[in-house]
Measured scan of single mutants.
Amino acid sequence: NQASVVANQLIPINTALTLVMMRSEVVTPVGIPADDIPRLVSMQVNRAVPLGTTLMPDMVKGYP
Results as ranks from 00 to 15, higher is better:
residue 39 R to Q: 09
residue 35 D to N: 06
residue 57 P to H: 15
residue 47 R to N: 07
residue 25 E to S: 08
residue 62 G to W: 08
residue 41 V to R: 05
residue 22 M to T: 00
residue 15 T to G: 05
residue 45 V to I: 09
residue 31 G to R: 02
residue 11 I to N: 01
residue 32 I to E: 02
residue 22 M to D: 03
residue 53 T to K: 12
residue 52 G to D: 12
residue 6 V to C: 04
residue 13 I to W: 11
residue 58 D to T: 15
residue 7 A to W: 02
residue 36 D to S: 10
residue 50 P to C: 15
residue 50 P to Y: 10
residue 37 I to T: 05
residue 7 A to R: 01
residue 31 G to I: 01
residue 1 N to R: 03
residue 22 M to Q: 01
residue 42 S to D: 13
residue 33 P to V: 12
residue 64 P to L: 15
residue 60 V to E: 01
residue 42 S to P: 01
residue 25 E to H: 05
residue 2 Q to I: 10
residue 41 V to H: 04
residue 62 G to P: 05
residue 59 M to T: 05
residue 35 D to G: 11
residue 29 P to L: 06
residue 27 V to K: 06
residue 26 V to F: 15
residue 14 N to R: 05
residue 20 V to M: 10
residue 60 V to S: 00
residue 57 P to K: 10
residue 16 A to P: 08
residue 58 D to A: 09
residue 42 S to G: 15
residue 53 T to N: 09
residue 40 L to T: 01
residue 14 N to Y: 14
residue 18 T to S: 11
residue 60 V to D: 01
residue 39 R to K: 15
residue 63 Y to V: 06
residue 50 P to F: 10
residue 32 I to S: 01
residue 18 T to F: 03
residue 13 I to R: 06
residue 60 V to W: 00
residue 51 L to D: 12
residue 62 G to N: 14
residue 33 P to W: 06
residue 2 Q to A: 15
residue 20 V to C: 09
residue 44 Q to N: 10
residue 37 I to F: 03
residue 57 P to E: 08
residue 44 Q to K: 10
residue 41 V to G: 01
residue 26 V to T: 12
residue 13 I to S: 11
residue 13 I to K: 08
residue 7 A to M: 04
residue 63 Y to N: 05
residue 31 G to M: 02
residue 37 I to M: 14
residue 31 G to F: 02
residue 26 V to E: 15
residue 58 D to E: 13
residue 49 V to L: 10
residue 8 N to E: 06
residue 44 Q to I: 11
residue 46 N to D: 13
residue 43 M to Y: 12
residue 64 P to F: 05
residue 23 R to Y: 05
residue 6 V to W: 00
residue 3 A to R: 05
residue 47 R to L: 10
residue 20 V to H: 14
residue 44 Q to A: 15
residue 5 V to I: 13
residue 35 D to L: 09
residue 18 T to I: 04
residue 56 M to Y: 10
residue 59 M to L: 05
residue 54 T to R: 03
residue 20 V to D: 10
residue 57 P to Q: 11
residue 37 I to E: 03
residue 18 T to A: 09
residue 44 Q to T: 15
residue 61 K to N: 11
residue 60 V to C: 02
residue 44 Q to Y: 11
residue 15 T to Q: 09
residue 63 Y to E: 04
